[in-house]
Measured scan of single mutants.
Amino acid sequence: MADQLTEEQIAEFKEAFSLFDKDGDGTITTKELGTVMRSLGQNPTEAELQDMINEVDADGNGTIDFPEFLTMMARKMKDTDSEEEIREAFRVFDKDGNGYISAAELRHVMTNLGEKLTDEEVDEMIREADIDGDGQVNYEEFVQMMTAK
Rank of each mutant, 00 (worst) to 15 (best):
M1I: 09
M1S: 08
A2R: 00
A2E: 14
A2W: 02
D3P: 09
D3Q: 15
Q4H: 06
L5Y: 00
L5S: 14
T6C: 04
T6R: 02
E7A: 06
E7T: 02
E7K: 08
E8R: 00
E8W: 10
Q9F: 15
I10T: 11
A11E: 01
A11W: 07
E12N: 09
E12V: 08
E12S: 05
F13Y: 14
K14P: 01
K14L: 00
K14R: 10
E15P: 02
E15N: 02
A16D: 04
A16S: 10
A16T: 11
A16G: 11
S18C: 07
S18F: 12
S18D: 13
S18I: 02
L19W: 14
F20L: 12
D21N: 10
D21L: 11
D21Y: 11
K22C: 13
K22T: 09
D23M: 06
D23K: 15
G24I: 15
G24L: 04
D25L: 04
D25M: 07
D25Y: 01
G26C: 11
G26S: 10
T27C: 02
T27I: 11
T27L: 02
I28N: 11
T29G: 00
T29W: 02
T30C: 01
T30L: 07
T30Q: 07
K31L: 09
K31E: 14
E32G: 13
E32M: 03
L33G: 00
L33Q: 00
G34M: 07
T35F: 10
T35W: 11
V36A: 12
V36L: 03
V36E: 11
V36T: 15
M37P: 02
M37Y: 07
R38H: 02
R38S: 08
S39M: 10
S39G: 06
S39A: 10
L40C: 05
G41Q: 01
G41A: 13
Q42M: 02
Q42Y: 07
Q42R: 13
Q42C: 04
N43Q: 08
N43T: 15
P44N: 07
P44C: 07
T45A: 14
T45Y: 02
T45C: 02
E46N: 00
E46R: 10
A47G: 11
A47Q: 05
A47E: 14
A47T: 13
E48A: 03
E48F: 13
E48C: 07
E48K: 07
L49M: 09
L49F: 12
L49N: 02
Q50E: 12
Q50G: 05
D51R: 05
D51C: 00
D51W: 01
D51N: 08
D51Y: 10
D51M: 05
M52F: 01
M52G: 14
I53Q: 05
N54E: 04
N54I: 10
N54P: 08
E55M: 10
V56A: 12
V56S: 05
D57K: 09
D57T: 09
A58S: 08
A58F: 04
D59P: 07
D59Y: 08
D59S: 08
D59M: 09
D59K: 08
G60R: 09
G60I: 07
G62M: 09
G62K: 11
G62Q: 15
G62C: 12
G62N: 02
T63R: 10
T63I: 13
T63C: 03
I64H: 06
I64W: 05
I64V: 14
F66C: 14
F66R: 05
F66T: 01
P67I: 09
E68A: 15
E68K: 12
F69Y: 08
F69Q: 04
F69D: 06
L70D: 01
L70C: 03
L70S: 13
M72Y: 08
M73R: 11
A74M: 06
A74C: 03
R75C: 02
R75I: 13
R75N: 01
R75G: 13
M77L: 12
M77R: 13
M77E: 03
M77D: 09
K78F: 00
K78R: 13
K78I: 12
K78P: 00
D79E: 11
D79Y: 11
D79H: 09
T80H: 07
T80E: 10
D81V: 14
D81S: 00
D81I: 06
S82T: 04
S82K: 06
E83W: 11
E83S: 00
E83T: 01
E85K: 04
E85M: 15
E85A: 08
I86R: 03
I86E: 04
I86G: 14
R87F: 13
R87Y: 12
R87L: 09
R87M: 05
E88A: 08
E88M: 06
E88C: 07
A89S: 14
F90E: 12
F90S: 02
F90C: 05
F90R: 01
F90M: 05
R91Q: 10
V92W: 08
F93P: 02
F93Q: 07
D94E: 03
D94K: 00
D94A: 06
K95M: 03
K95A: 00
K95R: 14
D96T: 14
D96H: 05
D96G: 12
G97T: 10
G97W: 01
G97A: 14
N98I: 09
N98Y: 10
G99V: 09
Y100A: 07
Y100F: 09
S102V: 02
S102T: 06
S102E: 06
S102H: 10
S102N: 14
S102L: 09
A103R: 13
A103M: 15
A103G: 10
A103N: 14
A103S: 11
A103L: 00
A104R: 10
A104D: 01
A104V: 11
A104L: 05
A104Y: 04
E105P: 05
E105N: 09
R107Q: 05
R107F: 03
R107N: 00
H108M: 14
H108Q: 12
H108D: 14
V109A: 12
M110D: 05
M110A: 12
M110K: 06
M110Q: 03
N112I: 11
N112G: 15
L113D: 00
L113H: 01
G114F: 03
E115L: 00
E115Y: 15
E115P: 14
E115F: 01
E115H: 12
K116G: 15
L117K: 01
L117Y: 04
T118H: 06
T118P: 07
D119Y: 12
D119M: 08
E120H: 14
E120P: 15
E120N: 11
E121C: 00
E121G: 10
D123S: 11
D123K: 05
D123E: 09
E124Q: 01
M125Q: 04
M125V: 12
M125C: 04
M125L: 13
I126M: 14
I126N: 08
R127V: 05
R127N: 11
R127S: 08
E128V: 14
E128T: 05
E128R: 02
E128F: 09
E128M: 15
E128L: 05
A129Y: 03
A129R: 06
D130T: 02
D130Y: 09
D130H: 07
I131P: 01
D132F: 14
D132M: 05
D132P: 00
D132Y: 08
D132W: 04
D132R: 03
D132L: 00
G133V: 10
G133C: 01
D134T: 14
D134G: 12
G135R: 10
G135D: 05
G135W: 02
G135Y: 06
Q136V: 04
Q136M: 00
Q136R: 13
Q136T: 08
N138L: 02
N138S: 14
N138W: 00
N138Q: 08
N138T: 08
Y139E: 01
E140Q: 13
E141W: 04
F142G: 01
F142M: 11
V143A: 12
V143P: 14
Q144P: 10
Q144L: 14
M145P: 09
M145F: 12
M145D: 09
M146C: 07
M146S: 04
M146T: 11
T147R: 08
T147V: 15
T147Y: 07
A148I: 06
A148L: 05
K149I: 09
K149R: 12
K149Y: 14
